[in-house]
Design a protein around this nucleic acid. Structure first.
Lengths: 337, 337
DNA sequence: TTTCAGTACGGCAACGTTGTCGGGAACGAT
DNA sequence: ATCGTTCCCGACAACGTTGCCGTACTGAAA
């Protein structure tokens, strides 16, 4: 079986003690330069690597951070993970990615697993199902460093980073209004997510600016963020069977935006002639779509980088941190129609 | 700071020894049922979790498997990861995902990291740059269980799982021929990847069936599998500036297929009128594209599941395994034109 | 009463590593 | 010759857990 070499092996081979070998490799001044040279050369030869598990046990840190996202297949998250890895990598941290698939149960299990595996900190974006965050605050209260990105928890006090969702939603809705649409529906994820709340606020503000009343039946929630196609399909069907059919939809999520276009194609609803669609998405293939889709793009990579920098600062801080940042980054509206 | 409770804490609180507490929790017959009850209740109350790092150090296994892919943003891989997680999860294994971004250097570093972190086994899909696999055979020779999927290493003897790339490529090319195309180019990844070799073979066989000679200048390699858009763009430009321009392209990869369509749009080349495109892709939004793209779809989820089952069988085998499977799964040709 | 088996628990070692302490040897100063 | 100092290095403990052995106690059989 797989047996890596240890300090003891080196010590035995060279007739030294493990302590001496350890210190020779760590380049302490207490070891003579001859001994150091011998040990270093031998270690090089047999390709010695210190056992990180033993180190973790001793030092009570793992040099790894846990990431919780809903799905890596989501373009926003795969880009954010790119940013996370770029920083973590530089700072010597390992990244462990877990997916919730928008399930609260899965989120609890993954978080518990990451915590018990001894990650030094967590980067969290909540699942669509999650409304109770006590599984996180429990760990946070016990001192586990934590940074939220994108879908943040309102009642946990720590660093948070998000896009300017309200502004992005406002811009997208205003653009629909400017293009002449007046009956604008809103398709969004579960109603307790921070991003849903903020995007709804932007949508509402834009309508108000044009003096258009917000209609309840124009707002459709998908509790699983469009994980299941039926969810999206049903919401669209309900919208399209209204007496006063909408002439545009502002969609608050990547998977939902794609799902929306898919449903439109299935029902042979022409986009943007019959209905115009504008939504949050970080997909890089929207340009290739048959139906032009205006999109609000988040700086995902940058958000991943910033979140990771914040987390590592928390982890490596000597003293408890009490001042927390709440960074908000601008979105970009891409017009295609 | 974050200090989880240990056996020692429980022992101290209950006036027992750590051995007794340990055995009470493991439900050994040597412990009286009263003591067991007391210990179990207290452990429940303070939410005790055994420290997996200490367990790993002791038992020399981590109950985790490392995954090496080029990019999670690639649809094939994100689906395969779904399959991997579904099995690993059931069997109590944790999944650590790493990305190479098609870089050989990155692959070496990630593999080294995973190995030294003590994963119990590896699921590997080689990067496009990788031609030398000695960093893997070194670990494999030392007994680290390993299963290859999709992009397999020819000279490492272990379980392997791949799609029937040759058949898939043959089917796609035949379809192009049947639709009347005769000047079919081939855009592929780096020439040493197993998938490139097999897909080229299928392409060649199809041309032969129709008695069409294979032309060198119709075959374009992208050493980084289309990681950099310039790579794809240049290859297409070279094809399109040939005296005898191709009227179809068979593309051997997800990112390349998308990249190809993007370039066609940029150069205003009409698909499929001017040139017909057929390629390997597991993207689920191809239906929405403006230019219809025929695609060869791999059973990614199933491949992930099978690979993980094979790996866990290797890991948990009491005796060294010498008989290795080489599973090949059928692809599916999706026609859209 | 002695012996023996069984029960129920504690003590110790080990996984691989590093920090602390202690000690032998060499050397210079007294 | 004696003492203090410096230079190297080894022994030991600890991180949290479990396997192995030892042992005190109980009760029954001889």
């Amino acid at each position: 079986m797989f047996e890596p070499t240890t300090l003891k092996d080196i010590a035995k081979a060279l007739g030294l003690s493990t302590s001496t070998v350890s210190r020779a490799l760590r380049d302490t001044h207490e070891i003579s330069s001859e001994t150091k040279k011998i040990v270093l050369e031998y270690a090089q030869k047999i390709n010695y690597r210190p056992n990180p598990i033993a180190l973790s046990l001793k030092e009570r840190r793992t040099k790894s951070i846990g990431v919780l996202v809903s799905e890596v297949a989501n373009h926003y998250f795969s880009q954010a993970i790119g940013g996370i890895e770029s920083i973590a990598y530089d700072r010597g941290y390992h990244v462990i990615i877990t997916q919730t698939h928008e399930s609260y149960e899965r989120e609890k299990i993954n978080i518990q697993h990451l915590a018990s595996r001894g990650v030094d900190g967590l980067l969290v974006s909540l699942s669509a199902e999650t409304s109770d965050t006590s599984h996180l605050s429990l760990l946070h209260d016990r001192g586990l460093p934590m940074v939220f990105f994108d879908r943040v928890a309102k009642d946990i006090e720590t660093h948070k980073i998000s896009a300017n969702n309200e502004q992005g939603a406002y811009d997208a809705t205003i653009q629909l209004l400017e293009s002449g649409r007046r009956k604008i529906a809103h398709l969004t994820s579960s109603n307790h997510l921070s991003i849903s709340i903020e995007r709804l606020a932007g949508y509402t503000a834009a309508l108000q600016k044009y003096g258009i009343p917000v209609q309840e039946e124009y707002i459709k929630y998908c509790p699983h963020g469009g994980m299941f196609p039926e969810e999206t399909e049903q919401a669209i069907q309900e919208l399209m069977s209204l007496k006063d059919k909408p002439d545009a939809i502002f969609v608050a999520g990547d998977r939902l935006s794609i799902g929306c276009i898919t449903v439109m194609k299935k029902f042979n609803i022409s986009v943007p002639e019959e209905i115009s669609i504008s939504g949050f998405s970080n997909s890089d293939v929207l340009d290739l779509f048959n139906s032009p889709l205006n999109s609000v793009r988040q700086p995902a990579y940058e958000m991943g980088r910033l979140a990771t920098e914040m987390l590592i600062k928390l982890i490596e801080s000597k003293y408890p941190v009490t001042e927390f940042e709440n960074r908000v980054l601008d979105t970009e509206l891409v017009i295609r129609s």
